[in-house]
Design a protein around this nucleic acid. Structure first.
Lengths: 102, 102
DNA sequence: CAATCAAGTTTGCATTGCAAACTGGTTGGA
DNA sequence: TCCAACCAGTTTGCAATGCAAACTTGATTG
């Protein structure tokens, strides 16, 4: 291998997706229309604090949107994945698959 | 879903492997007997500093071993993956594959 | 109406990864 | 011979991250 052959980074992953907690969140959201905070918390095994902050990061990155509503008089937060989120997840999957060689 | 149904974490990944730089390093090492520092640097696209520190972490975790030698009078460092490293990588791959559903 | 619970959010901290600076030795040139 | 440039790698400094615990706001219960 000659120096000129220096390769571009082999594994260039979207860090926003790469974090396991967020990867899990996105994967769950990708499978459903809209998901409630508490349901998501149980499925992911995250505590409220971390779910809240990871969701905020995903929202800041445009990968999900937060829907604030009330169930009765109690506030209930739900999430939806955005188109950008869906394709980021898709791209992430494909890079991983490619890296591991089909 | 009732509270008692709280699931164990869905995606429990070995953080030592999960970091893209280290995942790349391990994957390269898994494919060869022994790999020299500079070669590894070019293939991974990491700078020396980061390759050095990631390799140290992998070594601390028992996933690779460092072989110090000389080529002529110039020091040359090489790495080998250990059995533990190989199986950690394998386990990581399988978890990912399982998570993404075959 | 005090205490408890529900639903999230914010805070504090220890850990990380990254790039830049540094070290110890070697080679080439004047 | 002396010193500047270079090679091979390590250490350092810092900003960003993830995690758990503490906090907030409001609703319900005894």
């Amino acid at each position: 291998m000659r120096p000129e052959d220096a390769l571009p980074p082999i594994l260039d992953l979207d860090r926003l997706v790469h974090e396991p907690a967020r990867l899990t969140i996105l994967t769950v959201l990708a499978a459903a229309e809209e998901v409630e905070f508490l349901y998501l918390q149980r499925v992911t095994g995250l505590n409220k604090g971390n779910l809240s902050s990871h969701a905020q990061k995903l929202e800041a990155g445009g990968y999900l949107e937060t829907v604030k509503a009330f169930r009765g008089r109690i506030p209930a937060t739900s999430f939806r994945i955005t188109a950008a989120g869906r394709s980021a997840l898709q791209a992430y999957r494909e890079r991983m698959r490619a890296f591991f060689g089909a």
